[in-house]
Amino acid sequence: MISTAVILSALELGCIYALVALALFLSFRVLNIADMTTDGAFTLGCAVSATLAVAGHPLLALPAAMIAGACAGSITALLQTKLKIPSILAGIITNTGLYTINLAVMGFSSNVNMMKSKTLFSLVQPALGSVYKLLPAALITLVVAVLLVVFLKTRLGLSIRATGDNPDMVRASSINTGFTITIGLCMSNAMTALSGAVLAQYQKTADINLGTGMVIIGLASLIIGETLLPKGKLWMKALGAVAGSIVYRFIIAIALRLDLPSECLKLISATIVALAIGLPAIRGAMKPATKGGKSKC
């Protein structure tokens, strides 16, 4: 029922979207912030990447998209830490503003076509053959995941983790929480934008609506990963985000095979996230006698 091509494409997309899951691992799990900038930052990555690829710079497009994403993250962080806007609202405000920015990056057109442009994948196609899409995507995700885990063990990384874990304690340890939140949000949105950048070149098109619902898809992947892998060390959690993202793509592939119309996918994603996050409460309601004390990450 499922062909090699379907498996290959699920793996490819899983690796690309895993960057969003890793980004949400940093913002949602580590920093304890539901970052609504994600949708806009993803599209921003797509837009920057597509525009630069069309201009003949498919490789430069990736770091450029990351910088753009980091800028978007810094705006959300600024709204949150300096103007004291609640974090969810800060993300929504940036996200709304980004819609115009994204259109502007694409030359006020709602999509950019890269059919005739060189992409990161077309550059390596002669050398890699049939895995010319999977290998670069997997490599990028692997490098980002390793760098993220190593970073979280550095002094700055420890400060960021503590900021999400116990802000009271962090201030008493002479760490500026405004600074750590800013660094964390810049990094997570840079990762999200990188994901968008790779995806745009992967499918040779960028669209203003590509990022819609991305935060939910990322969360679904993250939570699937957490359910599948044992709780434990940081690298296990990062691995879980990547694995969750791949599993999510397989679920979608199967759903499509079952002739579910693709319009239903967002509803399925939303249901997965609602069920996964609500699972402890559902379990608690079913077993009222036992006390359900589920710890964060």
Binding site: R155, L158, S159, R161, A162, D165, N166, D168, M169, V170, A172, S173, I175, S295, K296, C297
Partner: peptide, 15 residues
């Protein structure tokens, strides 16, 4: 209030 619960003893001391 004084410690980060999801971090190790060593990491708390490092902070």
């Amino acid at each position: 209030k004084g410690t980060a619960p999801h971090m190790t003893i060593e990491e708390n001391l490092a902070l």
